[in-house]
Design a protein around this nucleic acid. Structure first.
Lengths: 114, 114
DNA sequence: ACGCTACATCAGCAGTTACTGATATCAAAG
DNA sequence: CTTTGATATCAGTAACTGCTGATGTAGCGT
């Protein structure tokens, strides 16, 4: 009855971690996130800053918003964006784990060829 | 003579940072990296571990190898893979910078609408 | 030499994603 | 109320990316 279990390739939230990295994997989007880490900005700032088209910026901001990476606040005609506090805490922790484990146990070699 | 300068959207190596995140953005590839952070493994281990096809694993290992994220060492019929020491140090530093700046200066709002 | 096993490469398909022009919304200005 | 400026949404396209079957190579055992 259960062959339809969706392919669970990744244990322990590795999939959601990958999803967050995917959001940082585009140069323009990473630039937006980086800029927002220093100060709140509205869409017009990001357009000026990056030189990208308005629709392109809005497109990326939507992805970031829907993923909960940024928060938006409308103020008159403007929309202010800022990073969601603590969004990267977990990802940072996981990546540190990978980097640290790598440093300490990189030499282990389990038995091969069963 | 220089209008063909490729679009430099991102300053200060944000592009290469994005490229490294892109490598971690695939669930299966992240799983591989995560596994290699704990011990060296050969291709056959990764196939067993993930249940993915051999060609798929080889495909991802190639990407990781070409990007310098993993190192490979042939031993007879087997090929051992391990994480390149320190590959994530810089990315980790940058991501920490983003997370920390975000926490301290998230409230700043520059003048809008020039 | 033969076959088997571990692994890499290639080529094609399918699904995804980034970009952009057209269009809609909506608030402030006049 | 009309205009303008800021922003969001939509739809289409082009480019990219992951997956996989077919195929190639190279050790190792027999």
């Amino acid at each position: 009855m259960s062959p339809s279990v969706s392919i669970e390739v990744s244990p322990a939230g590795l999939t959601s971690l990958a999803a967050q990295f995917a959001l940082l994997a585009d140069p323009l989007r990473l630039r937006i996130v980086d800029s927002l880490s220093r100060e709140q900005l509205c869409t017009c700032h990001l357009i000026e800053l990056t030189g990208a088209k308005q629709t392109t910026i809005s497109h990326h901001l939507r992805l970031l918003r829907e993923a909960g990476v940024v928060l938006s606040e409308a103020e008159g005609r403007f929309t202010w964006y800022r990073l969601t506090p603590g969004v990267f805490t977990e990802s940072l922790r996981r990546l540190q784990g990978i980097a640290l484990d790598s440093a300490s146990t990189a030499r282990l070699r389990p038995a091969c060829a069963s």
